[in-house]
Structure formats: C-alpha cells, structure tokens
Design a protein around this nucleic acid. Structure first.
Length: 379
DNA sequence: TCTGGGGTCCTAGGACCC
DNA sequence: TCTGGGGTCCTAGGACCC
C-alpha cells in the first residue's frame, strides 16, 4: 500500500461536554450522563466528565453504583437528538478539510489525510491542529486526534493524551509508545480475548508481539491468531471506508421491573407492539424495508435468546412486522422473567431494489475473517 | 433490585439445490 | 445400494464496538 496518513478523531467526553455547553454552571463539577438521569432507576453511565472520573465513575457503570462512589455527582438524562446535532456539526467541520472520512459512530471518525496539502510537514501535526481548531470553532467542543500510518495505531494514539490531545505514532514509535500498553487497548480485543491472553501471561501489546505465532494460532485459531500478531506489531492495511449501507435497524427496551412471559403477557405484548411501531417508523424515515424480523429477549440472569423469521418480501409496515415479531416471541422459552425485549429488522433493502441477505449480512470486515468466532472465544 | 441501546461481523449446522 | 461435493439461505448465538 502507498504511503498513508490516517487520523482518528475522538470527541472528548462527548455527551457530557455537549450538556455542559447548555449548563455552564455545572462546569468543574462531577457530572454523569445516563439513563433518564435518575440514579435510583435502572441504567448505566454513558459518559462522565473528567471530574466524575476522578471518583472512579466509568461508562458502563450502573447509575446506582456511580451515585455511591460520588454522592454529589450531578446525573443528567441522555438527549440523543442534541448529541446527533453536535455530531453533524463536528463532522461538517471536518468535511471542510477532506471528504475522506469514515463514520465510526456519534463521536468519532477516521480521516484519510494522505492526499491533503501539507500533510507531510511536521509529520502532519499542523493539519491535525487545524482540524481540531475547526471542530472547536464549529461546536465549542474539544477533540483528541491520533495520527499514524494506519487506523489501528491512529485509534490507540488518539486515546493517549486526552482531552484535546494530539498524538503521533509512526512505525518506529511502536516499541516505545505502543508495546508498554495493555493488550485491551487494541480495538478488537475485548474482555474475553483479554482474559485468555492473560492466561497465557500476555498482558502488554509488546508481550503479545513477541509471542510465538504458532502458540497464538493454536489458542485462537488461524485467523484471529494471525490478526493478533499483526495488530500487536502495529500492522493494519484496512482502508478508510467513506460510504456504507445499514445492515439492520432495531429497538429495544429494558424494563424497570422484570416481566414474565405468561404472567405479564399484556404488558409484554403492548411493549412489543410499541417497539414494532418504532422500528417501522425508523425504517420509513430512512427509506428502508427488511425481510428478516427478529426479537431479542434478555432473561433476569442476563442470558440472551433471539428468534427470527424471514418473510418472502421486505416490509416497512408496522402491522406486518408486529405479526412476525409475535410469532418469534411465541418461540421464546418462558423459563424465567425477562428484563429486556427488542425487535430487529435485517436483510435491509431500499424499496425497489433487490433485497440483500437476511440475518447475517456480509460487509467490509473490520478485521480479518473469523477474528471472533474462532473457538476459544465462543462460550 | 449491579450491568443501556444501537449497531457490525463471525461461526455453525441444517435445508435445499445442482 | 455407495458416495461425493459446492453454494446459498435460514436460524441462533456470541464477541466486540460506540
């Protein structure tokens, strides 16, 4: 592959920072965003300010637990519409520099800066600082940027000097900068793989890089094993993908109190019908229809079951989705109470176009094939 | 009353077709 | 009267990400 300069741009404490724009009086105080902002209810922290993080509050943590750690913490409900509005603003600011941008969700992007004028000056730092300035001017928000020859290293780099950081990692920096970090910093190594690597005595990326390839392949399978080896050595050839089509759309909800499939049937049925209406509205708003309708249930012990059904034709009709969803729910075992119910529509097509495949669409693999399902990681 | 909601990708087995 | 494959679709489950 040709010479590349890839940036990963990550907004700093995005939800919390957006909230502080309209509540400046909360600046400097511990603030956590999550659920409906009521820490006695079910929900998790999505974002915490750096002041709240100082108390040990982390995203994914139960609101209740966060309130225990920091009783004076201010809790605010999530307002996705507002965050999406700022997401559009910061992405538009980046688009004034280049259109080689890959969306990675509401608060981060990859940018292929390889062809941008001046990118070879000072390893790209002036171009990156210019982007940070444009984002700040458009939104009032700071972001952190990693600059590297590929997405993998850029992603790790952007996290190294938050907030408002700019971190450049080139191939020759990998041993000193990347290898001391824990393996979990690699995008694609999650809790399960982390645990297994720890069992092998591999804690840092450098230790993983030095591990014999046959051992990794034996433990993780050929695909994931090889990918681990490449990633630990800082190698990654994935392109910046600027356009993509959705594969599925879903709605789900966690109940304030667990519900039983038989005893609480009325409430569950009403909930399922509402989820179907919502997902149908989402499909129509975005101009899609789907063939594969599925439900997802989470039991009170956190186990998840899914049931789905593929229709002869794609639909965006709430009643048709509801019929299929109820058939699926009828096949969910009523063994224990449910804490979550969801509806998903996959096999999406724009009406008029041929339907793509159902449940498991094929797209651009973020990582080499089979990076996950290889045996030791399943179950 | 620990543990949200919206996604992507991958695997595996059986059906079914050629 | 024993033995195949390849390929696709469908379904279920799981890891991981933001």
């Amino acid at each position: 592959m040709d010479w590349r300069r890839i940036a990963h741009l990550d907004m700093d404490a995005f939800y919390a920072s957006v909230e502080l724009l309209r509540r400046p009086e909360l600046r400097g105080r511990p603030v956590a965003i999550g659920g409906n902002g009521e820490p006695s209810r079910r929900g998790v922290v999505t974002t915490a300010t750096y002041e709240a993080r100082a108390f040990g509050i982390r995203s994914g943590m139960a609101l209740r637990r966060a309130a225990e750690l920091c009783p004076q913490c201010v809790f605010l409900p999530v307002d996705f519409d507002e965050y999406r509005r700022y997401s559009r603003l910061f992405k538009a600011a980046i688009a004034t520099v280049t259109d080689r941008v890959e969306d990675r969700g509401i608060d981060e992007v990859y940018i292929d800066l390889s062809g941008v004028p001046g990118i070879r000056i000072e390893r790209g730092a002036p171009v990156a600082r210019d982007i940070q300035r444009r984002v700040l001017e458009a939104t009032g928000l700071t972001c952190s940027v990693g600059l590297a020859p590929n997405k993998l290293l850029a992603k790790i780099a952007s996290d190294l000097h938050k907030p408002a950081g700019l971190t450049i990692v080139d191939e020759e920096d990998v041993p000193a900068t990347i290898w001391p970090l824990p393996v979990r910093r690699i995008n694609g190594i999650g809790p399960k793989a982390d645990l297994q690597l720890e069992e092998l005595g591999l804690r840092t990326i450098g230790e993983l890089a030095a591990a014999p390839l046959p051992m990794l392949v034996a433990r993780f399978g050929a695909n994931y094993g090889r990918w681990l080896h490449e990633a630990a050595n800082g190698r990654d050839e994935r392109p910046v993908v600027t356009a993509s089509e959705p594969v599925s759309m879903s709605r789900e909800t966690t109940f304030e109190h667990d519900l039983h499939l038989r005893r609480d049937w009325q409430a569950l049925a009403a909930c399922l019908a509402e989820l179907c209406r919502e997902v149908a509205a989402d499909l129509r708003r975005r101009g899609y229809a789907g063939r594969t309708i599925g439900v997802k249930a989470r039991y009170d012990d956190f186990r998840i079951v899914t049931r789905d059904q593929t229709l002869p034709e794609a639909t965006d009709d709430a009643a048709a989705i509801r019929r299929a969803a109820f058939e699926c729910l009828g096949r969910v075992p009523a063994q224990r109470r449910l804490r979550l119910l969801g509806v998903r529509v996959a096999g999406l097509a724009r009406p008029g176009e041929a339907a793509r495949r159902g449940g498991s669409g094929r797209g651009d693999a973020a990582l080499p094939a089979a990076r996950q399902g290889e045996l030791p990681l399943s179950g």
